[in-house]
């Protein structure tokens, strides 16, 4: 198996690693970097539990090779409360009971984060479509939608103050 050297930024830290050509980004994140907040729920890019950001875009890291992240910036769920304070999305999920087993939650939050960065004031329908690539088996989605609405409002308020 051919080995490659990749240099990338993960949650703000630049790092260099030797990886197999075929190593999936999700395994790189989970196994090599020990960032286990990114989960694996399927092998067909269907469930979204592995969603991370690459250069600010939400992608399913089970269908990207680690080498494809070379030279890019990767953000995982662990980046959100790095400063100690919860991100408004994390707060929203907690306040609105937007999670139960918690397995889909990191991916769901990363998809929602991408949405709110593009569209700070989404309609309910826009939220539902934006997370339609993330499967949740526990919540029935209503409270996830409420959690994202909570975060959107809070982020808009913060923006207005700033």
């Amino acid at each position: 198996m051919s080995q490659h050297t990749i240099t990338l930024t993960v949650n703000g830290q630049e790092q260099t690693h030797q990886v197999d050509a075929r190593l999936l980004l999700v395994h790189f994140i989970r196994e090599n970097l020990n960032l286990t907040g990114t989960h694996i729920g399927c092998d067909s890019t269907s469930c979204g539990a592995c969603t991370v950001h690459i250069n600010g875009r939400a992608v399913k890291s089970c269908t990207v090779f680690a080498v494809q992240a070379n030279g890019k910036s990767v953000e995982t769920i662990e980046s959100l409360a790095a400063g100690g304070d919860l991100h408004p999305l994390q707060e929203g999920f907690w306040e609105k009971h937007g999670l139960q087993c918690g397995y889909c939650t990191p991916g769901m939050i990363m998809s929602a984060k991408h949405l709110l960065e593009k569209n700070p004031n989404p309609t309910e329908e826009e939220i539902r479509w934006a997370i339609s690539g993330n499967l949740c088996r526990c919540t029935g989605y209503n409270k996830i939608v409420e959690a994202i609405q909570y975060a959107a409002e809070k982020l808009r308020e913060t923006e207005a103050v700033a």
Partner: peptide
């Protein structure tokens, strides 16, 4: 919830 929303849940595949 605090552990789940921060990606700090511990599931079987996280055990190493």
């Amino acid at each position: 919830d605090p552990r789940f929303i921060q990606g700090k849940g511990r599931y079987v595949d996280d055990v190493k």
